[in-house]
Design a binder for these strands. Structure first.
Lengths: 254, 254
DNA sequence: CGGCCGGTTGAGTACAATCAATTCTGGTGG
DNA sequence: CCACCAGAATTGATTGTACTCAACCGGCCG
C-alpha cells in the first residue's frame, strides 16, 4: 500500500522467462538488460502489500501494471456461484495486471507480504514504443504466460483428484527449479485452500489427495508446506492414471 | 500441405484482437495496418490443410508460426492416460505455433479445411525488431491469448457439466459476436467429441448436457451444429449454479 | 443393402462434493 | 509455563454427478 519513490532496492523491474525460439538458450533467465531495467525503474514506483491485501479488483480501471519483487501474488476471479478460482500464482520477476479495454480482467491479492514495482501504463507504453528490444522481451514473457496458463487448463482437465494434485506439485517444482531454488524439496507458499482454488477441488479433497500420496509412500510432508518426493517413479506415474487405484499393473491392452 | 508462394489472396497476415489498455477503442478489431500486413506478406507463404490434417506435433522443431486465413485449427495435447485435451480453437486472424526453447508446446490440426499464412520465425524476428509498432500489436494479441486461455481454465474449474457447456457456448458466442457474425444463433464448427475434449468431459456427458438444456427449454439445436438460445435468462443463470437442478428458486441466502 | 461414423441413450459404479465433527497448530494472555 | 483460542487442516458419513461400458439410432457412402 505504502507507495514511495523508487529507492535503492534492486536494479529495477525484472522479467524472468525463456526465449520461445532459441533452442535451449540457457533455459529460463533474466531477459532484461541492465539499461532496460534502469529505464523502467525511471517510470516505476515501489509498492508494498501486507499478507491478504487486495491489490486491485476485477473491473477496476487500469492505470498500472505490476512486477513482483518479493512475495507471492494471486490473480483470481469469483465464479457466479460464489466459488473463487485462482488463475495464477505470481512470484518474483513476474508481471501482473492483465486487462481488457482498460479494466482488469481479474482481481489480485497478496498471499504473503509483497513488494512490487508499479508501472503506469501511459509511461510504459511510450517506453515500449521507443525500444523494439524491450518489447520483444515482453513478448517472450507473454508467451511464457500463455504456456503456463495452458498447463493450468491442462491440469484442470484431468479427472482424478490425485492426478491434479501431482500435476500441481510438478508445476511448482518446475517453477522452483527454473529459478534455481533448492531442488530436493518443494515449498508451497500458499495454503491448502489456495491450492484447492487453483486445481479446482474443495479443501477436503486437497487434503485427501495429499493423504493418498502420503500413505502410498510417494511423498512426505514436513510442516504442511514442505513436500519431499520419496518415490519419484510413482510420482510421475501418478500424474497420468485413470482408474488403477493401487499398483495393480493392469496390462495396457491395445 | 501444398505450399505455394504468396499469391493475391487477401492483403497479407491479419491479427484480430483488442487493445488491452485503450478503454473501448472500438472493441475487437483488425490491429495491423495495411503496410504492416504487406510487410508480413513479404515473408509469408500460404499453406493449406485438409480437414483432419495434423499441422505439427508437440515437440517438433519450430521454424515457423501460423496465421489462420480460413477454417478452424485446434491445438491439443495428449494426456499421459491417453485422453486428448484441446487447448484452443483458432479461427481466422488468429496466430498459432506457440513454442518453448524451439519446440512446439502443443500439436495442431485442422478440424475443417484450413488456409493459413506460414511465417518463418527467423524472418519474422528480424521483421519485428525493425518495428516497435508491429511488436506492440503482437503484444496486444498475446494478451488476448492469455485472457482467452484463462477463461478456458475458469470454465474447466466449474464442477457441473451443464455449467461448463453453457460457459463454452458463451465463449463461442462472444467470439462470433466480436467478429460481427450473425448473433441470433451460435454455430459450432467442431463436433461433440472436440467440445468434450475442450470442456473436459466425455462425449456422452456432452450429449447429456445438451439434452438437459434442450428439455429445460433453454436452447434449441438445429442441425446439431446450430444452437439458438430460447431462454436467455435461464441460459445466463445456468452458467453459475451449484446444485439447483430445476427451477426450485432457492433463496440466495447471505 | 450393409457398414461406418457421429451422436444419443441406458444401467451401474466410482469418485469427489457436501456437511459436519474433530484434530492440529501457532499465537496470545493469564 | 500452560491454558486457551482461532484458524487451518484433517477425517468421517452420505449423496450426487459424471464416468464407464454398452446398446442403439440415423444419416451417408460405397
Amino acid at each position: 500500500m505504502a507507495r514511495r519513490p523508487l529507492s535503492l532496492s534492486g536494479q529495477g523491474p525484472a522479467i524472468w522467462a525463456v526465449d520461445p525460439w532459441s533452442p535451449a538458450a540457457g533455459g529460463t533467465r533474466q531477459l532484461l538488460t541492465t539499461t532496460e531495467r534502469s529505464r523502467l525503474a525511471a517510470i516505476a514506483s515501489i509498492v508494498q502489500f501486507r499478507k491478504g491485501a487486495v491489490i486491485y479488483r476485477e473491473g477496476d480501471h487500469v492505470d498500472a501494471i505490476f512486477n513482483v519483487i518479493r512475495g507471492v501474488v494471486t490473480t483470481y476471479k469469483k465464479a457466479p456461484n460464489g466459488n473463487e478460482h485462482i488463475a495464477a500464482f505470481l512470484l518474483s520477476d513476474d508481471l501482473f495486471g492483465l486487462s481488457e479495454e482498460g479494466r482488469y480482467t481479474n482481481s489480485a491479492k497478496a498471499i504473503t507480504p509483497v513488494a512490487a514495482y508499479r508501472l503506469p501504463v501511459i509511461a510504459l507504453r511510450s517506453c515500449l514504443s521507443r525500444s523494439a528490444e524491450l518489447e520483444f522481451h515482453i513478448i517472450c514473457k507473454l508467451c511464457q504466460e500463455v504456456r503456463q496458463t495452458q498447463r493450468h487448463a491442462f491440469l484442470l482437465s484431468q479427472r482424478r483428484a490425485v492426478c491434479r494434485l501431482v500435476m500441481f506439485l510438478q508445476l511448482i517444482e518446475q517453477l522452483q527449479i527454473s529459478r534455481g531454488e533448492q531442488m530436493d524439496e518443494i515449498y508451497l507458499p500458499m495454503d491448502r485452500s489456495d491450492i484447492g482454488e487453483y486445481v479446482g477441488m474443495t479443501l477436503p479433497a486437497v487434503s485427501r489427495a495429499f493423504r493418498s500420496l502420503i500413505t502410498r509412500g510417494i511423498i512426505k510432508v514436513l510442516n504442511g508446506r514442505h513436500v519431499r518426493i520419496t518415490d519419484r517413479n510413482g510420482f510421475e506415474k501418478m500424474a497420468g492414471d485413470s482408474i488403477e487405484t493401487s499398483g495393480i499393473a493392469q496390462n495396457p491392452s491395445s
